[in-house]
Design a protein around this nucleic acid. Structure first.
Lengths: 231, 231
DNA sequence: TCTTTACATTTGTCCTACAAATATAATAGT
DNA sequence: ACTATTATATTTGTAGGACAAATGTAAAGA
């Protein structure tokens, strides 16, 4: 009778707060709430749902954190434009993320670096190229590139994509990326690796070449990371 | 005296809940809390921080939503492995996201499709290829591909990357992607477009070709979307 | 009609209370 | 001394009351 009981998932016992959170989000969606729209007040919601104001406030607190709603003291709440990355930002902590998630993020960064090529070529401007060249020239004089130098160059690339979310997303992913790579290369190999493709090479291709050539070069540039990918 | 007053940013007046949320996350980080570690109880936190238990609970409610902590009724709270995409999942609603964020997401999906090539070739198995071929063969018999057919093929690709987060991420992005594209192509051009590169073509290249060739083909396959990219 | 005053509204915060179930300590029984 | 039972303490989830503060609105007065 109890055979295979281990396969049974524990049926999720949602707290009142969880349920109210879900109900509210559905309510917003189904009634096509748009940014600026006024929300019912807390007491009204509590009474309609037959829960305490505490529970409602705990649920609203979550939505407020996501930027989905805005509470203006003494003037009621309104719908708002959520912050796309607010939720993920608070969670990107290498010490509490699962190994699996950390690996996923490591790979996500590699994918982004390869994927942005089309956008770079579609949107590059002379001003952008000049600024990137400045960075490259400065780095040429350095004996070795620091973490900050890497961020400066690649950050500028994300900048040039004209996509604000990429830019911010990448800066959020980078610390985790670094952490994963550091833990993979067991600290012992602290040698400075010579890039087979330098930032200067990437710059030249971005200026004169094609997306195809850029992706090829970027792949070479990131070779040391791609080499860690296991089947 | 008041000239240029408009340039002054309103100094962020954080609520107690906001501040407690920040303090708690810092506390976890600085004390290297790891999944499974026991947390102080609510009353203790409230007394230490000199705020009411309500405020603490509202802050904890947010962290619970992110999966960062777990509360076991009557047994205290423990640190937990956060759900990487829990936050973003609740916010991916085309009707409340800003136009700018929607555009960013549209582009993000294109970037992912191009970027996964390396991973597909590094991790493809015969079993995966067989399953993908099955999908392709089935779709060959169809006069026209539905949205579900698209999801089935591309979803299988994400599957093959061996990256759970990609898989889930992509399925979250897709509805927004569709919504953006639909609103760009003013409904009027409902004609069925003939892919310059079909799913069958992509499959053959994935089986016999190179990442480079695959990216090239994928770019062609997504041409209609890439054509929408503006400077 | 305009100004001033009073009132109602609503979020943020604090407080108290208690159910329920678990872990721990205390008691009783052998 | 050891086990079994009972009582106690703990802690989250939920309910409900209270009030400050500032805003918008209605009422009163000039």
């Amino acid at each position: 009778m109890n055979s295979k009981l281990g396969l049974l998932e524990p049926l999720e016992s949602l707290s009142m707060t969880d349920r109210v959170e879900n109900i509210l989000r559905e309510y917003f969606t189904e009634n096509a709430f748009k940014p600026g729209d006024a929300l019912p007040n807390e007491l009204e919601i509590a009474q309609k749902l037959n829960v305490s104001r505490n529970v409602v406030r705990e649920a609203l607190s979550r939505l407020r954190m996501l930027g989905m709603i805005e509470a203006r003291p003494r003037r009621g709440m309104i719908m708002s434009q959520p912050d796309l990355l607010a939720g993920i930002e608070k969670v990107l902590n290498p010490f509490i993320l699962s190994q699996s998630n950390q690996k996923d993020i490591f790979e996500l960064r590699l994918i982004l670096e390869m994927g942005i090529a089309e956008f770079l070529f579609a949107r590059k401007t002379q001003k952008d190229l000049d600024e990137l060249e400045l960075i490259v020239e400065k780095q040429k004089t350095l004996p070795v590139l620091s973490k900050e130098d890497e961020i400066e160059f690649h950050g500028k690339l994300y900048d040039m994509t004209g996509n604000e979310t990429f830019q911010r997303f990448q800066s959020l992913l980078f610390p985790v990326f670094e952490h994963v790579f550091a833990s993979m290369t067991n600290q012992k190999d602290n040698y400075v690796l010579v890039d087979p493709v330098s930032h200067a090479d990437l710059f030249r291709i971005l200026r004169d070449g094609t997306p195809e050539a850029f992706r090829k070069a970027m792949h070479k540039h990131l070779e040391v990371y791609y080499n860690t990918i296991k089947k």
